[in-house]
């Protein structure tokens, strides 16, 4: 019997790959920038993950793909949409999560998850790239700044400005006008991130505000986006250590469910609990707390309800308070 499964997220700007063992532990993962059309990026992500794990494609019991290119992969036995996979991956990273905000390269989506961890409702940008990674890319170019330093620069904003347009192209025009009027780059970038937060809040409104909230996707690595969304929501965001791989992880977990069923693999309750606790401790942090080996409660929330016990009681307290 094969002992591993693979999840591949063939996104619009990056490809992500995750390999799991039969207990659901991450053995290896990789993120690669794409050649979206050529598929070179996705091949590189798969190769890199296999190399890290010291495995070959033939060692995979199941391979599941997701993302916009999910139907284009010969390696995949099955594919699911990125909404289903991000929900599954995010809930695995933050057990008890009820809302997933995923902002990727060309789409943004908000997914509400029911108490069984299944997608209850979802909303996604369906008209344009407003509030996505592409929106940030365009505006980073307009202010002549590296995408990587965009978030840190925006955090230095002092004055509140407003970008009204939700269209990336028109917003770029507004940004150029504000710069021409002499406003500081930091303030203009603050306004750009506030616009993304407003757009995200609009999607949250469509599915219902509920917590705990997890943020996944590449934009979760941008500290200003996280701060502005958090402020707009009035709730803390739980950030997985590797927010970009949530979709690939979800795909791998769906594949694992399938493969376990097929091979009648039974995981012991002890292994399962240990695995879930470890995943939560490894991955779930609030902003500024990446990699800390336990779920940190937002200080504002921690005061009225001091932390008493383990992970589940914290989540329960969090949920009650939200």
């Amino acid at each position: 019997m094969k002992r591993h499964v693979m999840g591949i997220d063939f996104g619009s700007t990056t490809a992500k790959c995750v390999i799991l063992d039969m207990k659901g532990n991450i053995v290896a993962d990789s993120v690669a920038h794409m050649g979206a059309v050529s598929g070179e990026g996705v091949k590189a992500a798969i190769r890199d993950t296999l190399d890290k794990a010291g495995l070959e494609q033939a060692d995979m019991g199941r391979t599941v793909s997701t993302g916009y290119g999910r139907r284009m992969l010969d390696e995949a036995d099955k594919n699911y949409t990125e909404i289903t996979c991000h929900a599954r991956g995010a809930v695995a990273m933050v057990p008890g999560a009820r809302l997933v905000i995923d902002i990727g390269g060309q789409d943004s989506k908000v997914i509400s998850v029911d108490s069984n961890g299944l997608v209850a409702q979802f909303a996604m940008n369906d008209r344009c790239a407003a509030g996505t990674g592409k929106f940030l890319e365009v505006l980073a170019r307009a202010v002549e700044i590296d995408l990587e330093s965009l978030g840190d620069t925006a955090l230095e904003a002092k004055e509140k400005l407003k970008i009204s347009s939700m269209c990336a192209t028109f917003a770029e025009t507004e940004v150029i006008s504000l710069l021409a009027e002499g406003y500081a780059k930091t303030d203009v970038l603050g306004a750009v991130h506030a616009a993304i937060a407003a757009r995200t809040l609009g999607l949250v409104g469509r599915v219902g505000k509920n917590g705990p909230v997890v943020m996944t996707g590449g934009v979760a690595k941008n500290p200003a986006a996280v701060k502005y969304i958090q402020d707009a929501l009035g709730m803390p965001l739980h950030l997985p250590h590797k927010p970009q791989i949530a979709g690939a992880l979800g795909a791998a977990l769906l594949g694992l469910d399938d493969y376990r069923k097929q091979t009648a693999y039974v995981i012991s309750e002890e292994e399962d609990m240990a695995h879930e606790d470890q995943m939560a401790q490894d991955k779930a942090c609030i902003p500024g707390c990446r990699g800390t080996p336990e779920l940190v409660v937002d200080p504002a929330e921690a005061k009225p309800a001091p932390r008493k016990g383990g992970l589940k009681s914290i989540l329960s307290t969090l949920q009650d308070n939200l």
Partner: peptide, 19 residues
């Protein structure tokens, strides 16, 4: 935008099946 719509319909189908 048919591709985005397709993702929404596929997700809906997945929701119905998994429920």
């Amino acid at each position: 935008a048919m591709e985005g719509l397709k993702t929404r319909v596929e997700t809906f189908v997945e929701i119905v099946k998994r429920r």
